[in-house]
Design a protein around this nucleic acid. Structure first.
Lengths: 224, 224
DNA sequence: CGTTGTGAAGGAGTTCACAGCA
DNA sequence: TGCTGTGAACTCCTTCACAACG
C-alpha cells in the first residue's frame, strides 16, 4: 500500500524516528505500541504519528495500537531499507574518519563500501578497517559496487567540484557535511548538515531566554 | 530593530546560511549583494530572502541590494553571535574527537572551552590540543567558564542521563548527536543531528528515482 | 531603472475532535 | 471500552506580483 510518491516531506523526515523507536521497543520485547507511546518515544505528538502512519496506508488496530514488527517492516520498505544500501565517503579528514568508524551506519541499513580521498598521502592508509582509495577511482567504484548514496566530508572549497564529480559518476543522493550550499541537478538529492549552522540556531533560542518553539525542527540546506 | 521574539522558526533556520554567504562574499571583496545573489549563494529563492530579511527589520537599498557588512552585523546580533560563545563537548569517542578538532566551530562564533568524558581512561588525554576533563566536574566547569551550549556526543544509552546532568548544571541549549530523542524541560533547546536519520531520508528520495521535493529540508528531533 | 518590501493568494503541515471499529 | 483513522479548522510558510523608492 505504501504510496511512496505521495508521502509528504515532513512525514518522510519523521519516519526514521519512528523506525528507531520501533527497533528500541522490539529490543525490549514490546510487540505492540499505541500512537501515544510511539509519540513519546519519538518526541512528537500522537495525532501527528497517526496522520503520518496513515499516509503509508499502514493499519494499526483500533483499541490496541500498531504491531511493532509489521510497522517496522512497512517503514523500512517505504524508506528503501529492505536491502542494505552501499554508501561511500569522500574526504578522510577528521570528520570523514569519525564517520568511517561510526558503527551506526552499518546497523541501520547502510554499508560503507569505499573511502575516497584525493590526497595521495592518505590513499592506502587504513581507516576503521578500510583502505583509503584514490578519488580518481570514483567512477569505477560507483559502478562496480553499485553505490547511489555518497557522504561528502571534504573541506568547503572542494565540496562543489567533488559534488559535480559524484553526480557525473552516477550518484543520486549526497549527504553533505561541508558548510556550503552545493548545487546539483534536479534528479539528485542533497541534504546538508552543518554543525556551525546548528549551533547558531541554538544560539538564537538560547539568547532568547532558552525557550524553544513548540517543537524544535532542524532546517538545513539541500536542493537541486 | 531586530524583533527577536517574533522571528519565525523557518527564518531563524536560514539566517546562518545567509550569514555564511555574506562572510564568503566579504572575503571576495563584495560590498553589496542583491536578494537574488544572496539567494543563489544560499540555495533558496529571492522572495524568501527578502521576506526573511524584512523580518529582522533590516533594510536593503532599493535598486542596489544589501550592504554586506551591515547585514552581517545585523544577523550576527540577532543570532547572539556578537560575543564568542563558550561551548563544551561531552563524550570523546570518534565523533567527539572529530568535533573537538574541527576548526569550523571556532571560526563561527563559538569557542570550545571543555571536553568531558566519564571514562577515566580518556580523562587526561589530549584531543585537539585540549585535555579531557572528568564528567564529574561538569557543574563546576559550566559555572566557571560560563557555558550555556553543550554538544552531546555520547553513545545513545548515555544521552538521556547526560542531558539531565547538563540541564541540572545550567546548560540551556544542547546539540545532540546521539540517535535518540532526549527530553528536557521547556526552557532548554535541543537539536538532534543523526547521521542515520539523514541517510534514511536520502534513501527514500533516492529510491523514489532520485527526485527531491522542491527544496530538501532537514527535519530532525528536538523538544522539551 | 533595478531592487526592495509587502499585501494577498496559495500550499503545506499541524492540531482538533470525534466517528468508527476491534 | 480504547485507540485508530480522518474530515475540518487552523496556523505557519512560501510564492506571487507589484507598488514604492533610492
Amino acid at each position: 500500500m505504501p504510496q511512496a510518491g505521495r508521502i509528504p516531506e515532513a512525514t518522510v523526515a519523521r519516519l526514521p524516528l519512528y523506525l528507531q523507536a520501533l527497533v528500541d521497543a522490539a529490543e525490549q520485547g514490546t510487540t505492540t505500541l499505541s500512537s501515544e507511546a510511539l509519540a513519546q518515544a519519538s518526541g512528537v505528538n500522537s495525532a501527528k504519528v497517526r496522520k503520518d502512519l496513515s499516509q503509508l496506508g499502514s493499519y494499526g488496530t483500533r483499541g490496541v495500537g500498531y504491531r511493532v514488527d509489521e510497522l517496522t517492516g512497512e517503514i523500512s520498505e517505504v524508506l528503501g531499507l529492505t536491502r542494505e544500501r552501499p554508501i561511500l565517503i569522500v574526504g578522510v579528514g577528521n570528520l570523514g574518519r569519525a564517520l568511517a568508524s561510526y558503527a551506526g551506519f552499518t546497523q541501520r541499513g547502510f554499508r560503507l563500501v569505499a573511502l575516497l580521498d584525493a590526497d595521495a598521502d592518505k590513499v592506502g592508509s587504513e581507516v576503521g578497517g578500510r583502505t583509503v582509495e584514490p578519488f580518481s577511482e570514483l567512477a569505477a567504484i560507483v559502478a562496480e559496487r553499485d553505490v547511489s548514496i555518497a557522504v561528502l566530508a571534504t573541506p568547503a572549497a572542494a565540496a562543489q567540484p567533488v559534488a559535480d564529480a559524484l553526480v557525473e559518476a552516477g550518484i543520486s543522493a549526497i549527504l553533505n557535511f561541508a558548510p556550503v550550499h552545493v548545487s546539483v541537478p534536479d534528479r539528485v538529492s542533497v541534504r546538508t548538515v552543518d554543525l556551525s549552522t546548528e549551533l547558531q540556531i541554538l544560539s538564537f533560542y538560547e539568547q532568547l531566554h532558552g525557550a524553544i518553539p513548540r517543537r524544535g525542527a532542524s532546517e538545513t540546506t539541500s536542493r537541486s
